[in-house]
Design a protein around this nucleic acid. Structure first.
Lengths: 195, 195, 195, 195
DNA sequence: GATGAATGAGAGTTCATTCAT
DNA sequence: CATGAATGAACTCTCATTCAT
């Protein structure tokens, strides 16, 4: 809110411009990498002038932040959807899968968006994830006790962090299915150990 | 070795210069952040000319890589030392502690160095960590079976990744002791689950 | 056209800037020599920022190329004008004179511009000269037969090359009138020998 | 003599070093192009220290000049040899052939060496060529009269200049045999026209 | 609101040359 | 004589951002 120095438009053409800028940014990020993501190029790809871009976003980071924000929201929605669909069955695997598949773009892009969000918005973001994550986890049979700050951190960040590490090292060619299995194993065993 | 396009000196003055450049780089990174780490400033702080800097390092990344290399080596040495000192007692906690305390600088700096190393040197680095890590872990009672690629990845990267995440969000003010406890718990329970 | 990575402006202020950069470049080249022709100095003399310069020209060579392009065009126009004015009388001397006098600047500068154009744009340029040149030459009484590749090369390059050589050695203090006479003699005798 | 600020060695090891520097320079020029011809690299390839290089050559241009000097000398020797072998038969073709084949290296390299010599030593060089050239030409039946400055220039530079132009535009793929024929035709017809 | 020309600090890098050892 | 570590002026080019129109 206060972080975006510019108004977020809610109507018509202005909204379309706003979205075009974000979409262009995402495309560049996903297709050409972070190095090519500069404001002039974003404006060009979005079909607006650089001046217009700055009418909607205070600076370069604001664009990145919004992109990261939406990415995080997509993941949270996914988790929420999974949980609401089958509240009894909601388990670790569903959450892990949401983390792996949620959002758009290549794993590297998704990683970068998560990173960026943390970098430019700081703590609050992790708080967001905490919320969605813990809400889901707390419904699990094995999560009775109150969690310490550090335990919550592990629960909410372990899978994300490891997926990030995996995305950062594509040369390792980790198998997605097996990785999912191991992440589930990691978290389930940790959850069990907490009780 | 071959990655450094410039000669690594072995004698007197040149070696001192080489070290001065690395030391200055580390100081800047630790005290002023990555943004201020530019080659001109490094040279200035090292008390050498920019030309001298480029006689020892092919480019900016080469400096970062060497710093990361040394950081990783420090951690490996630490792990090796812990294990060799009390081979029977070597346990997960010792390894986690090595990861948390090994190397110099603020957590953020250490994180950045690990990152950088992965970014500029790629896979091989993770391989190095794998080696040191697995050698230690494999001596533990609970690690009998052959590990899959993905399991090894989890074992070697979980603690590192989470420490990285913790370093990236200093605002969370996580307690180091408790975090260590949880990391140990996480890994021990995972190891147990693997058998 | 496609070689200029940056947009060529067609409107007011931008066009003036574009021309100012070219004019400043030409002045520097003509007055201070190629060594002083660096982008910062060009921008300074043109009264624009270095950033502006790079908005219109992809790199230093692009400026030189455009200068060379205009120079070549000036010569071609001159030849065309001479030929169209007195189509019957158009002779070798008119062409040689166009080569000697066409374009602006000192002989050294003109030579350098021709050179540069060839260096950065390659063959196509020579092709352009060929065209203008041969069109003129082919109207002469003594040029009936079809020319081989090598003959056309001699016809189009002999005068240019020798003028270049003359410009490169100002210490020889060659007399322009006499040089013109000899170039005419050279080419007329060659043309005669071709038949 | 006065141009080389350093002594030209005539004995043993020093001479070998001197030659090694020149040879390395030539190799670099011919194989890797002018851009890679920097003093540090020359010293490295010559197997001497940069300091030693500067013991024998006042500056970078001095090396280039000596290379150009030797190149010109090779051509002169060639012409002299051709003429002395068959003084009766010595003709334009022999001279043109000497210009085309004399010296070592690719056409581009030879061209560059000629250029360089002119650039760094100026007029005197052309004088050298004049000498050798005119001596040969004056023995021809068709060159009786005294030549003007400009006529001598044409005679001595036409073939060189055109060969230079040909070397500068390798894309034209001019045929060496045919080009030789045309150069001979050009010069013979000019010589005839002079009488 | 929208435009896009203009800005300019600053980054990385090269290379001829010097001089203490 | 030879070494090679050190120098630093100079250069090209990028990109986030501003502001007059």
């Amino acid at each position: 809110m206060t972080e975006n120095k510019r108004r977020i438009p809610t109507q018509g053409r202005a909204l379309a411009t706003y979205e075009a800028i974000l979409e262009a940014s995402f495309q560049i990020l996903d297709q050409e990498g972070e190095l090519r993501l500069n404001t002039n190029y974003i404006a060009e790809r979005a079909g607006v002038s650089i001046g217009t871009l700055y009418q909607y976003f205070a600076d370069r980071d604001a664009i990145l932040a919004e992109l990261g924000h939406r990415h995080a929201e997509a993941i949270r929605n996914r988790i929420a959807a999974i949980v609401s669909e089958s509240p009894d069955n909601s388990d670790i695997r569903a959450i892990v899968r949401a983390l792996m598949d949620g959002g758009r773009g290549k794993p590297e892009t998704r990683m970068l968006l998560s990173e960026t969000l943390i970098r430019v918005r700081g703590e609050s973001v992790i708080g967001d994830h905490h919320l969605a994550f813990l809400q889901s986890v707390s419904k699990l049979p094995g999560a009775r006790r109150a969690l310490t700050h550090e335990q919550a951190f592990i629960l909410t960040q372990a899978a994300i962090s490891l997926l990030r590490a995996a995305a950062a090292a594509p040369k390792l060619k980790l198998d997605r299915i097996r990785l999912e299995d191991e992440l589930v194993r990691l978290m389930e065993s940790y959850l069990a150990a907490l009780n």
